[in-house]
């Protein structure tokens, strides 16, 4: 399916980005070009090929179930744009 301005707006919303009209038209142009290049992959028959998500074939990497003292909360909150009472603070969440 062709990429349209709607597509850009939809994925921008999914990725929580606000784009200006100018950005939208620029990114639409770029995306069309880039996706057209990606379509090169369609030349390849991969019907019997397993996908590789991890390039090194190791399995079962675990840690033991041991609890250790947590972090000083001041350090966790030190980078927060806004905090209160030891919590991160955001505008009211409507559920």
């Amino acid at each position: 399916m062709e990429i349209t301005k709607n597509t850009i707006e939809h994925i921008a919303n999914l990725s929580r980005l606000d784009l200006t009209e100018e950005e939208k038209s620029m990114l639409l142009f770029d995306m069309k070009q880039i996706i057209a290049y990606m379509d090169k992959l369609k030349e390849l028959d991969t019907s019997k090929v397993k996908p590789t998500a991890h390039v090194m074939q190791i399995n079962n990497v675990f840690r033991e179930d041991k609890s250790e003292p947590s972090y000083p909360k001041e350090k966790l909150l030190a980078n927060a744009p806004l905090s209160e009472g030891g919590c991160f603070k955001v505008p009211k969440v409507v559920e």
């Binding site: 609890s67 250790e68 947590s70 972090y71 909360k73 966790l76 909150l77 009472g85 030891g86 919590c87």
Partner: peptide, 17 residues
């Protein structure tokens, strides 16, 4: 991570990076 799963606690005291 190795933070405790214990219920309760002051906010953000059972948390780490």
């Amino acid at each position: 991570c190795s933070c405790t799963t214990e219920f309760g606690g002051e906010p953000n005291t059972h948390a780490c990076p």
